[in-house]
Design a protein around this nucleic acid. Structure first.
Length: 810
RNA sequence: GCAGGGGUGCUGGAGUGGUCAAACAGGACAGCCUCAAGAGCUGUUGGCUUAGUGCCUACGAAGGUUCGAAUCCUUUCCCCUGCACCA
């Protein structure tokens, strides 16, 4: 039978769209369920199988929840600002706007062909000024609250392009467009969001996110990096410098200090004699790209200055190091080589003395980082680390030389981008008034069309756009030409879906209150730290503005695995390993592709794409179609009733836990058990169970059964536990085993035609002769062992045991 | 380098203390059907052995815990993801 999948697919896709069955409104009768996939950046190379995997996972969940009776909000939108559009402008000369519009159009077409049940009426694009207006509005609020501020920060700089480079535009320390140009580090004045103000809450609330994967929470904990310690004041050139440490118990072991190479006050410490050496070192660091900084071998140089150890007055040399982070703590660390690996490595390299202050290891060979008993520590000798920490803090506290402190690794969020295709930062620089925020009524600040690409920051090339009157004094002023990081756009889009057309406000609070928080968020693990922290931060900020009445944006998080190309690496155009869903559905139909995608493995696992196994899914879909062609409607037997009721429970459970691969197995089992004549109800229920996975063919077959409504708007079947009879399963197992045994014997002995099976009376119920005949092609003579008329020439029947019948062949 | 996750049969993968030589699917092989191909159906698919049994070897590698390990612990190798200007 030839099946025209294309025809079936487009018929129902059109039907669903025309009837608007997936559009939802706020209502009180049903419980709401908000399900969301991380929205895509609409790349020019189109939607690939990896995207499809993400959306199919969500769509299965959405369709399932709808059938379970929820009022399901399932929207889609486009994170359409970003670097690739600008790169296309530089390389091919197409305008970012045009490029983006084309890409989005293409994405929508592709997504619709996957049969995804989105409420398209709520669609949004972050590149629309009606959207990014509110990004600018939030920026103004941040600024108002003192959470947006400017400071200098290092960036990758290409002297040829005369512009800042993204990390991904730096290849082996060279510019992506100029292979021979070394990328430099330059310090620019840039905008930051003070996310660190929320560090504590971002950290502590993780414990309440019970339905987030532990991996993500643990990664976020490490990313936020809360540590409790002490701030100790070291005196340098008469000035007190607070130094953070988690190990005050090792303070007697400090033999040097290390200051970050990016530290703003570094110059104050460099002495005349050391200046040349330091300059050379800094120059060397500057020619290494930012990306490589973290991978460098620890290196440093002496500044010439000394710090005074507050506890014993020792003079300690201060070094510059490439491994100290300028933003963490005070940008300088006390180094205890005897009890810290990094300090040890550094001390060995530069021949700095190592002083043991905790007993237990051999510090000449290796740093001893465990806790232990203090030695060489003056009055604190003999104390255990924990006790010593307390005592030392107490002592320093009394002398006003130190206090308890909490530090976070989390850094403030640098949002400035020297790029065009982003949200313009709504700030004006006035010659007289300085930094002036754009008045709310002037929003949005739209991106000008006329700019030049490839020559530095594009916005700087449109003078007309830059020049503006100061909103305060009407004097000469300039616009900020930096745009915002696109993570800004994706930090609150889920709120906008609740009220995506609102012209007057960022959103109607009542609508947001109804739909939020997101009940199920689905996306890749690669977002574990950045996006998934930023959007939590935004949620908390908007809550503090009084706009939201909850603390966390997402209740349940599911991280789907990465779908790699056949070569095992991430799908990308440049690698040439992109698999397009349409190519697969062309051959097998989209329902087959959907079914196959989720049956390959548990959806949270990384998988390499391979079309190898798809024929199994294709065969299944075709068999289902063929079966519905020939099945006769009649009465359902108790066996299939039992099976389907059990499957309802299992499939529901598996879908709820995102164990789609296991649900698929159950669906196959159930299908294999369907008899050629059964009730309409059984057939309908089977279709309902299959529907989330294969929406098109199930809709087709649903209508073929004579239904006029849509299957996705039907109720998910309710299992009748009373109809589940364990005996059937016992029978299946026992009979499978029996057939296996018979086959086994048939293999061993030749030329036997007649098969005799002897069972114990207790097993009579299990070994049903009709059932055995159904399953086994050869004729079987079944006897009870106590049957006087049985044929048993060798008296084999006495070997029969419980659920292990005796078998005789002749 | 740091952080998080993972390595299972010919392949993709289920399986997190006994019911495991390991679900399900693919592939391969054999048989049936057919003029034939395909599809479909039935069976086999770690090794040896046996009238349906028993034994051995196996879940990256090496050790350990346990009456018992694919599953727990330690060490080690390899792979994936992220590391703050890709999104």
């Amino acid at each position: 039978m030839e099946i025209d999948f294309k025809k079936i697919e487009s018929k129902w896709q059109k039907n669903w769209e025309n009837k608007k069955i997936f559009e939802v409104k706020q209502q009180s009768k049903k419980k709401k369920f908000y399900i969301l996939e991380m929205f895509p950046y609409p790349s020019g190379s189109g939607l690939h199988m990896g995207h499809a995997f993400n959306y199919v996972i969500g769509d299965i969940c959405a369709r399932f929840k709808r059938m379970k009776g929820f009022n399901v909000l399932y929207p889609m939108g486009y994170d359409s600002l970003g670097l690739p559009a600008e790169n296309a402008a530089i390389k091919v000369g197409i305008s970012p706007k045009k490029y983006t519009e084309n890409s989005i159009e293409n994405f929508i077409r592709q997504q619709k062909s996957l049969g995804l049940s989105y409420d398209w009426s709520r669609m949004l694009k972050t590149s629309d000024s009606s959207y990014y207006k509110w990004d600018q509005w939030i920026f103004l609020k941040m600024y108002e609250k003192g959470l947006a501020y400017r400071k200098k920060a290092p960036v990758n700089w290409c002297p040829q392009c005369n512009t800042v480079l993204a990390n991904e535009q730096v290849h082996n320390g060279k510019c992506w467009r100029h292979e021979n140009t070394e990328v430099q580090i330059k310090n620019l004045e840039q905008w930051f969001f003070k996310i660190t103000d929320y560090a504590e809450e971002l950290n502590d609330n993780l414990d309440n996110l019970n339905n987030w994967p532990d991996e993500v929470k643990s990664m976020q904990k490490h990313w936020i990096g809360k540590s409790s310690g002490v701030e100790i004041l070291f005196e340098i050139n008469g000035e007190k410098w607070p130094i953070f440490t988690t190990r005050p118990d090792t303070i007697y072991g400090v033999t040097f200090m290390v200051i970050s190479a990016q530290h703003s006050k570094l110059n104050n410490l460099v002495t005349a004699e050391q200046k040349e050496e330091v300059d050379n070192f800094l120059k060397k660091i500057k020619t290494t790209s930012k990306k490589d900084l973290g991978n460098l071998e620890k290196e440093g140089v002496f500044t010439g200055s000394y710090a005074k150890n507050p506890i014993n007055g020792d003079e300690i040399p201060i070094w510059i190091g490439n491994f100290v982070v300028a933003d963490y703590g005070s940008g300088m660390v006390m180094a205890v080589p005897a009890h810290d690996f990094r300090d040890f490595e550094f001390a060995k390299k530069y021949n700095i003395s190592i002083k043991e202050v905790i007993k237990g290891g051999n510090v000449k060979e290796k740093a001893y980082v465990e806790k232990g008993t203090l030695i060489n520590s003056g009055n604190f000798n003999g104390l255990e680390s924990e006790k010593a920490k307390e005592e030392i803090i107490k002592y320093l506290n009394k002398k006003n030389l130190g206090k308890k402190a909490t530090q976070y690794k989390l850094r403030d969020w640098l949002i400035s981008r020297q790029r065009y295709w982003g949200t313009p930062i709504p700030i004006i620089y006035c010659e007289k008034c300085g930094v002036v925020p754009v008045p709310e009524k002037d929003l949005p600040i739209e991106l000008p069309d006329k700019v030049e690409f490839g020559k530095g920051n594009p916005l700087e090339t449109n003078e007309k756009w830059i020049k503006i009157k100061c909103p305060k004094c009407r004097g000469i002023a300039k616009r900020e030409t930096d745009t915002m990081d696109t993570f800004v756009n994706s930090s609150w889009y889920f709120l906008r879906y609740c009220d995506s057309k609102n012209q007057k406000k960022i959103f109607d609070e009542r609508k947001v209150r109804y739909w939020m928080p997101i009940d199920q968020y689905i996306g890749g693990k690669e977002h574990a730290c950045m996006h998934l922290i930023y959007f939590r931060f935004y949620t908390k900020f908007l809550r503090d503005l009084g706009l939201l009445n909850f603390n966390e944006p997402v209740l349940n998080l599911f991280n789907q695995g990465m779908l790699h190309g056949e070569d095992g690496s991430v799908m990308s155009k440049s690698k040439g390993n992109v698999i397009l869903p349409e190519e697969v559905s062309e051959k097998y139909g989209i329902d087959t592709a959907r079914f196959f995608l989720v049956s390959m493995a548990s959806p949270d696992k990384d998988i390499d794409w391979s079309e190898k196994g798809i024929s199994g899914a294709f065969r299944f879909i075709k068999r289902v179609m063929e079966y519905f062609n020939k099945v006769k409607i009649g009465k359902a037997d108790t066996r299939i009733e039992s099976k389907i009721n059990k499957c309802i429970l299992e499939i529901e459970e598996n879908i709820s836990n995102f164990k789609y691969n296991l649900a698929v197995i159950k669906l196959r089992e159930l299908f294999d058990a369907l008899p050629l004549k059964t009730s309409k109800n059984i057939l309908e229920n089977f279709l309902k169970l299959l529907h989330p996975f294969c929406p098109h063919i199930t809709e087709e077959l649903w209508h073929k059964l004579g239904n006029k409504n849509f299957i996705n708007l039907q109720k998910w079947p309710i299992a009748n536990k009373k109809k589940i009879k364990e005996i059937f399963e016992k029978q299946d197992l026992a009979i499978d085993k029996l057939i296996g045994d018979i086959n086994n014997i048939l293999k061993l002995v030749e030329n036997k035609k007649k098969i005799y099976v002897y069972i114990l009376p207790k097993d009579k119920e299990i070994y049903d002769i009709n059932l055995i005949n159904q399953r086994f092609s050869k004729k079987i003579n079944l006897f009870l062992v106590n049957d006087k008329n049985k044929y048993d020439p060798l008296n084999i029947s006495k070997k029969a045991k419980l659920q292990r019948p005796a078998i005789y062949l002749e």
